[in-house]
Design a protein around this nucleic acid. Structure first.
Lengths: 340, 340
DNA sequence: TTTCTATCTGCAATCGTTTGCATATACATA
DNA sequence: TATGTATATGCAAACGATTGCAGATAGAAA
């Protein structure tokens, strides 16, 4: 056995046929007889042949690779989505190349170039909190390579995308809090540059409007939703003229921070203050009180994103129209927002 | 502008030079004058040239792709590790292709083939709970492609690996519980086919031994560490002759299940029963009581795995010896195991 | 002028497949 | 015999870069 990898050329020599026939035999081309196929495959096995997907990709210009750009893998929602994207793509015989933007729009741009250089056949993207300029995804160099956005998608631009029903989520949470008798519902949100927060915010305002509760901008905050920022906002809220009787936090980390803030400041939840989060991550059921939150069904979203990109790749016609899918959400009511 | 992608050939035509010079100019080869490089790069920009990494990979047989095989992306520990692996590899100019075995040894094997076909330059692997046969990683067809295991590694086989100090973790937890005065420490573990559980179990027995507490096999359980299984084990434990005064669960999901079991069965924690988990995931601090657990520093492990694979790829000499790295752990004591 | 470096550039093979087209064979049909 | 139709196989040109080697050019030294 040589140290050089075995190629179809070696198989051709072994069985005394041309490389083209070997190639066809191995890929079950109908023009090759069953008998020959068996012979070729046996020889391949015997020689320890290994298919070179790169060479095939170069020649056929189908790399069977999908690129994924995501802010960070280690966010519970994202990792759940990625899990199902990867599993689904695998059933199509496609591989996934994962890149992280680390919430940096500049890096995100570079990653697009990187993945295009790798000849990905499609791109799945959930953008950074701050991405405003999406032009990189429609440069001429993108020609022919479909892009599917999910979750965090362009705000003002048509594109293929799959998103949760964020407006409805924001609306449902707010409506629920209103129905629990709350009058002063604070909203702790992520930056509005990010589509999901914009839509939840719109839903929030819609519900207020519907219930004739005036919108008060002293009760809304926009910042990255970590514990520190949330504490700062809580401080402001409880130092303000109007003390809130509910807080709608736009993720569960922030909601948990509110709970902790309450514990530390003698604010009892839900009697003094009702709280709701978003994403229904696995901490909200552990918390005491358990936290009302919105389930986003990340697996459906991942599955949908993978199916959508594959459809776009496989459809021959030049799709001029954009496909937009919405996955439903479900408000899960728990103790943190219950009537006392 | 044509619909065909622009290649270095087009640049060569544009600037009136040969493709080899273009190639060298673009990759900053020292034999090309600065002046020429600038001219070439300007032309590339102008034509909208995009580097084809696949073609380069084929010719140079350096794909700049690392394959990752992991049970599931959506486990908190795993996704934290993956995050740092990907970020670190990116600094080396390498990409990461992520595959999930879904805890199936058969699928795991197929993924090795798949990734080898993709011409990965290295493989990073955390195996399934049940992988016993690691021969697939040392077949002749693997020749030259380094493999780094992390976390869940082969038990009885030398290999490159980076693992947490599991024995010490198991030992520390058990010792801590003993020092809190516990005499009957149950151990709820994953299957021993998996290296990490074997080592934690060994650490558990070592501590018992050191404190002259007899090992009692009625107090140990081996199964997948989900809530249902843990409940079943708890039922058995509390129906047995010897009622435990502590439970050392091998992950936090199981520890949380024990807490929940306690709530539902009038077992008060930590006064009646002390509890410890493993991995220090973000739920243990939310739980009431907060749960004693073991921090594994997944980011160090990911970083280490990425560095190690790159070292192996870049080292020219044929490494005969295996490198084994151990990341330290830290026992975080919390209410669930405190003296009353 | 000649010769020698040093510096730059080009030729052409190569990486391992895929694939359009041509060809070969066998068998049936006219 | 000539023709047609499947069926099976081979030829050779791609795909787009890299790279060993040879060659060209220019300036300096002899």
């Amino acid at each position: 056995m040589k140290d050089q990898p075995v190629t179809i050329k070696d198989i051709a020599r072994e069985v005394g046929m041309s490389v083209s026939s070997i190639s066809r035999a191995l890929s079950d081309h109908p023009h090759i007889s069953e008998e020959t196929k068996l012979k070729v495959k046996a020889a391949a096995e015997k020689l320890g042949y290994r298919y070179n997907a790169l060479a095939a990709a170069l020649r056929s210009s189908r790399s069977k690779i999908i690129g994924l750009i995501v802010p960070r893998v280690s966010m519970p929602f994202q990792s759940a989505v990625i899990t199902s994207i990867q599993n689904r793509l695998h059933t199509y015989g496609y591989n996934l190349m994962v890149c992280q933007s680390n919430e940096s729009p500049e890096l995100e741009k570079k990653l697009v170039d990187l993945l295009l250089a790798t000849q990905v056949e499609g791109l799945i993207v959930s953008s950074t909190l701050y991405t405003k300029d999406y032009s990189v995804f429609e440069r001429p160099s993108m020609r022919g390579i479909p892009v599917v956005f999910y979750d965090r998608v362009p705000k003002d631009k048509a594109c293929h995308k799959i998103v949760g029903d964020e407006f409805n989520g924001g609306y449902q949470v707010t409506k629920h809090l209103l129905e629990q008798g709350c009058k002063h519902i604070a909203h702790i949100s992520g930056p509005l540059s990010c589509s999901i927060y914009q839509h939840r915010f719109n839903g929030y305002k819609e519900a207020l409007n519907e219930y004739d509760v005036p919108y008060n901008e002293d009760l809304v905050f926009f910042h990255e939703l970590n514990k520190e920022n949330t504490f700062i906002s809580c401080d402001k809220l409880f130092a303000g003229k109007i003390v809130p009787d509910a807080i709608f936090a736009c993720n569960d980390t922030a909601a948990l921070a509110v709970i902790e803030y309450g514990e530390g400041n003698n604010i009892s939840i839900p009697s003094d203050l009702k709280v709701a989060g978003y994403s229904n991550d696995n901490r909200v059921e552990i918390s005491r009180p358990k936290i009302t939150s919105v389930e986003q069904f990340p697996h459906l979203m991942g599955d949908g994103a993978a199916k959508l990109i594959m459809d776009l790749i496989q459809s021959t016609e030049n799709n001029k129209s954009y496909i937009s899918l919405t996955t439903s959400i479900e408000l899960i009511k728990r103790e943190s927002s219950s009537r006392v």
